[in-house]
């Protein structure tokens, strides 16, 4: 199964993912349409930085699901079809319990005292909008093992370089 993974060293902090995320959750689904909507669409990905490293952060879909366990209204739930944690907007009562327990700060306030978070673009039939929008491929929609394999190969290359230098 593909996951939303990040090569933070490729993130230049352009925030294109944030814009694309908001547009993907707008009525019109287009940039020029979205900026004219009376209710501005909300982004669900946040480019955070400490000044040296940038990281586009969104719901990590943790398997222990603290947000689901904390939800008193049954709004935050595991969708049996997709295996993803999603919000049922009709049930959310705005108690913010999920916001407090999320270790990543990936759940935020939406309109009408409801929470919003990354839904992995479940309405879209293609890869998540933030991934499509990333100009440097820092955001990837990829199998975990493939992502890891790339890392392993890169480590081998690095080792070879180090050995060559040592000789």
């Amino acid at each position: 199964m593909k996951q939303l993974l990040v090569r933070s060293e490729h993130c230049v902090g352009c925030k294109s993912c944030e814009l694309a995320c908001a547009v993907a959750h707008s009525e019109s689904k287009t940039l020029f349409g979205a900026v004219l909507e009376s209710q501005p669409p909300r982004k669900r990905v946040f480019v955070e930085t400490d000044g040296t490293m940038n990281f586009p952060l969104q719901c990590r879909q943790c398997s222990d699901k603290p947000c689901v366990r904390a939800c008193i209204a049954g709004a935050m739930h595991l969708d049996p079809n997709t295996g993803l944690v999603q919000v049922n907007d009709d049930k959310c009562v705005g108690c913010w319990m999920c916001v407090m327990v999320c270790p990543f700060g990936a759940i935020t306030e939406g309109p009408d005292r409801h929470v919003v978070k990354c839904d992995r673009c479940r309405e879209l039939q293609y890869e998540p909008a933030c991934v499509s929008a990333c100009p440097t491929r820092a955001l990837q929609w990829v199998e975990v093992d493939r992502f890891a394999a790339t890392d392993r190969r890169s480590w081998v290359d690095h080792l070879k370089e180090a050995n060559t230098y040592a000789e």
Binding site: C14, K15, S16, L19, A20, V23, L31, F32, V35, S132, A133, P135
Partner: peptide
Amino acid sequence: QPQCGFGSL
């Protein structure tokens, strides 16, 4: 593609 949304606006 994709072109920067900030620039486009």
